[in-house]
């Protein structure tokens, strides 16, 4: 039937447009590195808090003085810069290897859709800090980070969605165990990244290499 052929044609067109417009150069290895940086950051943070006489397990009630705050802030920025730097480097390498452009419509859309919720989350965390709701920062970071991944997954590998949901659920659980915020944070940003990165590396990167 002509009719059926045209329906097939349309679905073929749609599928091709979808598949070719997703950014597929994202490196799985970058996830592993990001996870390692996050765990290192969490360990240093834990040490600093312990040094300040804060009992681990009661992180949310400590008086955070200005020096400590600055130190923690720098750790967070360092982890972020290292993670993003490594991701950009590895992703560029992968794109080049596959003769794909790193800066095209798919990567632009991916970045916008990833950073929009994430930026909102970052600002929200600063507000939490402003009102001294320190205990809620780790859960909020996990929740917003999860949402960012769910949002971004439409523009790259769909697998990103599972990491997003995992972080989202973990963040919600963490709201009920505020004193263990740093452990939840290390699990979400560290462990999940590493597991996910290895999974992605095995599934996509090695096959191409």
């Amino acid at each position: 039937m002509e009719h059926e052929k045209y329906i097939r044609d349309l679905s073929e067109i749609k599928q091709m447009m979808n598949r070719s417009s997703r950014f597929i150069s994202l490196s799985g290895l970058a996830g592993v590195f990001a996870g390692c940086y996050a765990i290192a950051g969490a360990i240093i943070t834990g040490r600093l808090l312990a040094n300040q006489g804060a009992v681990q397990g009661a992180v949310q009630v400590i008086q955070i003085d200005r020096d400590l705050l600055v130190q923690l802030f720098f750790i967070a920025i360092a982890v972020l810069v290292l993670a993003i730097g490594t991701a950009v480097f590895l992703t560029t390498r992968k794109a080049r290897k596959n003769d794909l452009n790193i800066w095209d419509s798919t990567s632009k859309r991916l970045l916008i859709n990833f950073f929009a919720p994430l930026t909102a989350g970052g600002l929200f965390c600063l507000v939490l800090l402003q009102y001294k709701l320190v205990g809620l920062i780790a859960p909020a970071m996990l929740i917003f980070y999860g949402l960012s991944h769910i949002n971004a997954s439409k523009y790259t590998y769909g697998d990103l969605k599972s990491l997003g949901y995992a972080n989202l659920v973990l963040g919600l659980i963490a709201t009920q165990f505020l004193s263990f915020g740093i452990y939840f944070w290390a699990a979400g940003f560290g462990l999940f990244h590493i597991i996910y990165g290895i999974w992605m590396y095995k599934k996509y990167d090695r096959k191409i290499a």
Binding site: K14, M16, S20, S21, N101, S105
Partner: peptide, 14 residues
């Protein structure tokens, strides 16, 4: 049909 679909949503493809 496939080639055109890909080129419609991408600047170019190799």
């Amino acid at each position: 049909l496939g080639i055109m679909s890909i080129l419609m949503v991408n600047e170019y493809a190799d």
